[in-house]
């Protein structure tokens, strides 16, 4: 029957398309640190282009290891990590800087340079990646405008509030137009109102097409956003909900086998 073959072909093309759309793919990835601590244990997962994903779980569950694998700050002891079509495990060390231009990170402690102004901090990320010097000014100001801090471009980090500092660090992360934004507890040091401001900003960046992965302990934010939630515990994925809450509730969510 020619019709059956057609359906099969369509299915196969669809399957392939899905694979192509996977921005991030982890194939049975394990990371055991030299001291014996387990970062991740046999993790298989994927993240699609344009997704907004929360990583939750207790401290030491493997959230940070997960993120550090994507920027090749650590290498897995086993398995393969594919980011945007590139095998992170097998790439040459000289390719790593280019991976990190596409996968940017923000942190709980912002990691801003205290002796540089907000503007200089953002421009620094462009300069050290050898961006066209003529575009630096426009791109930095665009970025600062997006995070709502164009008026404080000349302020030093010490003169800014925690929330403002995080905004500067987000501006620095997005100024290079990354494909993926990793946020490791970005609201960890901020009060709830400021945190929501940051979340709105991250959502806006996500809507522009950047995939956002955020590790957090903030229950109300996760519950309020209703986005995909990957829960880690002891290095394993114990839950992966498309529209999940911070904690798994009875009868809610799908439990994946380790």
């Amino acid at each position: 029957m020619p019709r059956a073959i057609e359906v099969y072909q369509v299915n196969s093309i669809f399957q392939e398309l899905r694979e192509v759309m996977m921005l991030i793919r982890l194939y049975s990835v394990s990371k055991v640190y030299p001291n014996g601590a387990v970062g991740l244990l046999n993790v298989d997962t994927y993240i699609r282009q344009g997704e907004f994903v929360f990583l939750v779980g207790p401290s030491g569950a493997g959230k940070t290891t997960f993120m550090n694998l994507l920027t090749r700050q650590v290498l897995p002891t086993q398995g393969q990590v594919i980011v945007d079509g590139r095998n992170v495990v097998r790439m040459r060390p000289s390719e790593v800087p280019y991976l990190r231009r596409a996968v940017r990170m923000i942190f709980q402690d912002y990691k801003l340079l205290p002796n540089k102004t907000a503007y200089e901090n953002v421009a620094f990320a462009l300069r050290v990646t050898e961006a066209n010097p003529r575009q630096v000014r426009t791109r930095v100001m665009e970025s600062l405008e997006l995070v709502g801090l164009a008026c404080k471009a000349r302020a030093y980090p010490g003169e800014l509030s925690g929330g403002e500092q995080q905004r500067v660090s987000i501006a620095r992360a997005i100024v290079g137009d990354p494909t993926i934004l990793l946020a490791d507890e970005p609201t960890g040091n901020l009060d709830l109102d400021t945190s929501w401001g940051i979340m709105e900003l991250l959502l806006r960046i996500n809507k522009r097409g950047t995939t956002v992965i955020m590790a957090t302990h903030n229950r109300s934010i996760v519950n309020g956003m209703m986005r995909r939630v990957i829960e880690l515990d002891g290095g394993k994925i114990v839950r992966d909900d498309e529209r999940g809450a911070y904690r798994r509730e009875a009868g809610h969510g799908m439990v994946l086998p380790g």
């Binding site: 990691k111 340079l113 620094f124 050290v128 990646t129 050898e130 620095r172």
Partner: peptide
């Protein structure tokens, strides 16, 4: 050290550093 850390994070090449 901090500056170098940031440079690595945002994708400066080793030679640039």
């Amino acid at each position: 050290a901090r500056e170098i850390e940031v440079m690595k994070l945002v994708g400066a090449t080793d030679w640039f550093i």
